[in-house]
Simulated assay, not measured.
Amino acid sequence: MDKYYPIMVNIQNKRCIVIGGGKVALRKTKTLLKYGAKVTLVSPEIDEEIKKLFHKNKIEIIKRNYEYGDLEGATLAYIATDNEQVNELVLKESNSKNILVNCAKNPEDSDFIIPSSIKKGPLSISISTEGKSPMLAKKIKEDLELIFKDEYETFIEELGKIRKMAIDNIDDIKVRRELFKELVYGSLLDDFMDNDIDDLEDEMRRIYMKYKMGSNTKTHRKR
């Protein structure tokens, strides 16, 4: 049976604790900052790159050994040390306070793992082999990056605008479904990727207006 439940977590402005001050802790910290977390790092020794983040006021640093209670108020905790004693103490506190923890050295002790991922604006794709083959996860990521190029970010942003307009102005859910079906399953994305569309926003709005006018006509006839 699969151990991990796939989920997307909003950590914007949430407190996340990183125990450790080396290269692994640096990678964890950078990823957390990318998604808007408020990061506190606890370690007596601090990597120079981590210090730069501190001096830019991007993170908080507690420059000492971990102490029980440091996880208070945390949404997520990350163990990035080789000190087994410290790791056990962090796990004990996280378990007692129901704080989800990720342990870099011993994944089997983790409540969650960090999948390999691709992000193009609002599009996030995560790849996980549940720790069985990180190298394969990396290869799959590289393969997917060849498919999901930067154009997807623009396409999704415009889809989001049309979706809001449709929800606000087209009452018939069947008409909305047909609109979204044409936008997503039609040739629009391929044409945009092939540079056959001069203005994606205008083309999407043209298609939207077709369905909006059709919906209004049907509503008028019923009356």
Rank of each mutant, 00 (worst) to 15 (best):
D2I: 02
I7W: 08
N10S: 09
N10R: 12
N13S: 15
K14N: 08
V18Q: 04
V18S: 02
K23Y: 00
K23R: 11
R27C: 01
R27I: 01
K28S: 02
K28W: 04
T29M: 03
K30Y: 08
K34P: 00
Y35E: 12
T40F: 01
S43L: 09
E45I: 05
I46M: 08
K51G: 00
L53Y: 10
N57A: 00
K58Q: 10
I59Y: 00
I61L: 13
Y66G: 02
Y66M: 03
Y68K: 11
D70C: 09
A74S: 14
T81W: 02
N83P: 10
E84T: 05
Q85W: 10
V86T: 15
E88Y: 12
V90Q: 02
V90H: 03
K92F: 08
K92Y: 08
E93V: 05
S94H: 05
N95V: 07
S96A: 14
K97C: 00
K97I: 00
I99G: 09
L100I: 12
L100P: 07
C103Q: 00
C103M: 09
C103F: 03
C103Y: 06
K105M: 14
N106V: 11
E108F: 13
I113G: 02
I118S: 01
P122D: 15
L123G: 12
S124H: 04
I125N: 01
S126V: 05
I127V: 14
P134F: 08
P134M: 06
I140S: 07
K141G: 03
L146V: 08
I147E: 14
D150S: 14
E151Q: 11
E151N: 13
F155S: 01
I156K: 05
E157R: 15
I162N: 14
R163G: 10
D171T: 12
D172A: 04
K174Y: 14
V175I: 14
R177L: 13
L179W: 02
L179G: 01
L183M: 11
L183V: 13
V184L: 14
I197G: 08
D199S: 13
L200H: 05
L200R: 08
E201M: 06
M204R: 02
R206A: 11
Y208S: 04
K210Q: 09
T217R: 02
K218G: 00
T219K: 15
H220Y: 12
K222V: 13
R223G: 15
R223D: 07
